[in-house]
């Protein structure tokens, strides 16, 4: 009797642990909310605001995804992860996806068994220094002390860059962005290195932002994007196409403000397919037909999200650069909805 109860418990535990790898969409729907792995706090990308609500460029993608699935952008729970814990959290099923400035690399894609479904920000690693250090190029940093976040690709790029230029440095390894900032401001390191977008975000939160400069060198390619677990293609497709729908919306001029008007008046077949007025596009992914409409209505199109969170009008002040649409000389390009 006792033994069978014990075995029953084991069987139940095995079932539960096996379920994490089943269809993520079903899990999310059954749960009634999306769990999105986010930053512990990177202003402009994913950081809690004064009310504790996550806001930012990455957070907006999670909200758009929740809107596409549930028709309600608020049905998303943000789980803060550090550079160290993020991939474990994703692999173990603690989060449904990771939208957290994570760089798409070969080994993460293949060895860690993840899928990077899109690139929502094309970035590169840079350096921030204090102006009075008198440095104008990263190659002048010989002998400097450099703060880096552990568990990131920047750690490896940094080692490669200094080796390639035959100069030396002392690393100060820190766990997350806020600790790196504290050390950098306290002067424990001469330079802080991370993705240029992250540097801009950090610089924006400094009290004396004008006394800090971001050096011109970009020492690596950092394609940042949403990550899902390998093996659940349907879920990967949903995340990918929700992102693409935001890019297409910008391309077609669909904004948060005019979406209802476009939906009722547009004659463009692609717009009509995207907004669910023609065909059964949503059903192919297991979603409602107005999935893209809900996603766009949540925070606006890609350009709107960019400008509202990290664009030139915000304290972070990033230009579109590589992240402009392909029609404007950038790299953001979405396949057709057909």
């Amino acid at each position: 009797m006792k033994k069978s109860v014990l075995l029953g418990t084991f069987a139940a535990a095995a079932l539960v642990s096996g379920m994490a790898s089943a269809a993520t969409l079903d899990d999310v729907k059954a749960r009634g909310e999306l769990i999105c792995g986010s930053n512990t706090g990177l202003t402009g990308f994913g950081a809690p605001d004064a009310n504790g609500e996550y806001q930012g460029f990455d957070a907006a993608l999670c909200k758009a995804l929740a809107a596409a699935i549930f028709g309600d952008a608020s049905k998303v729970k943000f789980v803060p992860t550090t550079g160290e814990t993020r991939f474990t959290a994703l692999a173990s099923g603690e989060v449904d996806l990771l939208v957290r400035n994570s760089t798409w690399t070969y080994s993460r894609d293949n060895d860690l068994k993840f899928d990077f479904v899109a690139v929502n920000y094309y970035d590169g690693q840079g350096f921030m220094v204090k102006k009075d250090l008198g440095v104008s190029s990263a190659k002048e940093l010989d002998g400097a002390t450099v703060c880096i976040q552990t568990g990131t690709t920047t750690e490896l790029n940094l080692a490669d860059f200094f080796k390639a230029n035959n100069i030396t440095y002392t690393p100060v390894t820190v766990a997350d962005d806020s600790e790196a900032q504290r050390q950098y401001v306290a002067g424990a390191c001469d330079a802080y290195t991370t993705d240029a977008s992250g540097l801009a975000a950090s610089r924006a939160t400094l009290a004396d932002a004008e006394n800090h400069i971001i050096l011109p060198e970009i020492i690596s390619k950092e394609p940042l994007g949403p990550v899902v677990r390998h093996g659940d293609n349907q879920w990967g497709d949903i995340v990918r196409w929700v992102y693409f729908s935001l890019v297409i919306a910008e391309e077609k001029g669909i904004t948060k403000a005019n979406i209802e008007e476009v939906a009722s008046t547009s004659t463009d077949p692609e717009v009509r397919r995207l907004l669910g007025l023609e065909g059964e596009m949503g059903a192919m992914m297991g979603l409602d037909n107005n999935w893209a409409k809900n996603a766009i209505a949540a925070n606006g199109n890609y350009g709107e999200i960019f400008e509202a969170n990290i664009g030139t009008a915000t304290p972070i002040g990033l230009a579109r650069g590589l992240n402009a649409l392909w029609t404007q000389g950038g790299l953001q390009y979405a396949p057709p909805v057909r």
């Binding site: 160290e84 991939f87 474990t88 692999a91 080994s107 552990t150 568990g151 390894t173």
Partner: peptide, 24 residues
């Protein structure tokens, strides 16, 4: 020591190596 960026066994094998290789 990880709290003050001291790279001991926890910081190298259990920190950076674990992260870069994904072999938790």
């Amino acid at each position: 020591g990880i709290a003050v960026s001291y790279l001991d066994l926890r910081g190298t094998l259990g920190g950076i190596t674990l992260n870069q290789t994904g072999r938790e």
